[in-house]
Design a protein around this nucleic acid. Sequence first.
DNA 1: GCCGTTTTCGGCCCGACTGTTTTCAGTCG
Length: 551
Amino acid sequence: MKNREVAAILARTADMLQIKGDNPYKIRAYRKAAESVYHLDEDIAILYEKGRLKNIPGIGDAVEAKIEEILKTGSCAYYDRLIREVPAGLLDMLAIPGLGHKSVKLIYDNLKTETLDELGEACKEGKIRNIPGLGVRTEENIIKGIEEIKQRGKKINLGIALPLARELLDYLQKSPLIETASVTGSVRRGKAQVSDIDLLLASNTPKAVHEYIKAFPAVSRTDYIEPDLVKGQLGREIAFEAIIVPPPDFYHSLVWTTGSKEHRKRIFAGFDRRDFEGSDSEAEVYYRLGMDFIAPELRENAGEIEAAIDGSLPKLVNAADIKGDLHVHSNWSDGSERIQDLAAAARSRGYQYIAITDHSRSLPISGGLTEERLQAQGKVIDALNNETDDFHILKGSEVDILKTGELDFSDPVLKDLDIVIASVHSHFKLEPRQQTERIIEAAKNENVDIIGHLTGRLLSRRSGYEIAVEEIIEVCARCNTALEINSHPDRLDIDENIARTAKEHGVKVAINSDAHHKKELDFINYGVITARRGWLEAKDILNALNRDELR
DNA sequence: GCCGTTTTCGGCCCGACTGTTTTCAGTCG
């Protein structure tokens, strides 16, 4: 049982209690406990064995007992009882934007609709508008929300898929039955969302490999087996495929299965599988194809084949090129760690600098800083910087772009900071023209260095706001304002396409973690993958600069 | 249900928008 799964049970407990209309503070307690468990640095099972669960903030006697039960049995009686009281479909309804726990309960009490489909039907029959407190707009909103959910399908964010794929890969690589193994498919190409996890294995004993795969603890089901293929499920909802090939075919198959389909179709046209037998690397496969090695992230038939033939592929940015993180939240706003602890974590990653960029005052839920507190924070940072020469904490802010395009701090205050990220956190539904102007206004401010999460998309939850991206990029190019690749796996915003456009216009890109916990500094890897998919090189990246160059 | 450098009981981040109302509850960030 992983931290993530324990956290999910606690979070669903909170959801069900909320639908039932239980004590709001109890609900918040469960949410907080779920958050804490999710962000633990250590394995919760190990903490439990050491008897240290109660050291976790937000976990007291009651939740401790439940976690103990969950670790031992996979669930707990309290949770099971709630499941019987609250139909699972009601939790799905919470994914509809604008529909919260109260409305879900209200609709259920009146109509007894238990699933998304039933709810959709009720809307179409005009039954929602008859419920006191709800109206036609709510009805329309629900229909739209359900459509969006259906359209998204069952895609998984890379942030979930990649760690799982690596875990399974680790396990497979330990087996003497398997000569070589790799993650492959869309996960290997680093797509922000994938539909399944694919692995490629080289082995002469596929049958024994089947048994070995089935024995992996996270494999919950194997439902399709052929001599060279195992299809199944990891955990409760993630599909995987393990493709088994004879060792001499491995690298050809790796190129083949990594895809994309369009890339594969074009490069292998006119070739035969036998042309690649015995290749000892992917580079050799590409060599036999008459072109340079193409990094997996580029294999989308977006010009990479031509570039590989004429030797003009970009030298893609690597994680090792990143010299610091320019977007991190401390416990001065909604982060959970002290500035010095974040700095220590960044330093141990080999960074030269970190920027503390807490929220500004207009975002009260996040504990946004007033100008006075921002100045006080600056003094704390000065003092920390005085203690060391080989690492630097930059004074920054993630300042809110207000509805008008004005910023949440005055220019003199911003001018004093080392780095300013301007981001939209409110009024997502402005007219496209107004929304575009609003961001352009911020990008033009000479104190703004970076525009944060440009489109505001949240993968699987919310599309970005409607803006004229290219127009904003042109302004950024003129005003020397950078764009952010927000590396949070729920955002990956800007995406690879916008990143590539930015590069073409000469706009620098900052790859930022937006960490709220020191552990989340690791998110940067997803940002690097996205940058690579956008053809970016180290010279395009703001925080690939050394500390002195950056300043 | 958690927590405590005045508390083992009585507190527990907040402000704005939306859609429903006709003064406000629900949702969001």
